[in-house]
Amino acid sequence: MRVGVITFPGSLDDRDAQRAIRLAGAEPVALWHGEHDLKKVDAIVLPGGFSYGDYLRCGAIASHSPIMAEVVDAANKGMPVLGICNGFQMLVEAHLLPGGLIRNDHGRFVRRDQMIRVENNRTDWTNKFDESEEIVIPLKNGEGGYIADKATLDRLEGDGLVTFRYLGVNPNGSLNDIAGISNERGNVVGLMPHPEHAVERGFGPNTADAMRSGIDGLRIFTSMIAKVLA
């Protein structure tokens, strides 16, 4: 079971995503943005960071990287693809997911332990969660405000494509409190919070149980493994 993590110039959480995949029980495979080789992986993670310094628009330049042609192709054939933060922005720029992400409404970068609700547990990346399960995942972004036109929002809500929703605090002004969405097939998921930072006790978000003990993010990766092995 091989899961690719693509490193772009300016990727930051690529090694963290690799660790999360390893802890979930799969083999992480480092992929390079400038190549056209997916190295026979079974799933792909686009990690967080500031690819190309967020120049032009977040994720815009990376979405034109050579390897993205293969990613789009594989996604359209049903391979599980996860975009985290900057990776979510790339998926939107590559038109694998609808809408867009803009500067946080308060104008500042924000880092917090964020409560979110799993709205759809039927995607390739959420099948290990209960429906409406409330989880804590670290969030850190400057441009995480999800936007889409009304027709798109209605379709996302109507078709159950909102995968994760912010609870308690909307940290960036996202419409409908949207934290993450999927495509109709459920193999492509993008979210602003960082599940790879909630996979190991001692290094995750604070929970009611103990500080830094949250590992809710791990199930995003084990969900994908279960799907691939099914």
């Binding site: 963290d16 970068f109 880092r111 960082h194 930072h197």
Partner: peptide, 13 residues
């Protein structure tokens, strides 16, 4: 401090 990322790297104890 909420404007600073302390998670990146996954090794912050």
């Amino acid at each position: 401090t909420d404007q600073y990322d302390y998670y990146v790297g996954g090794n912050t104890a």
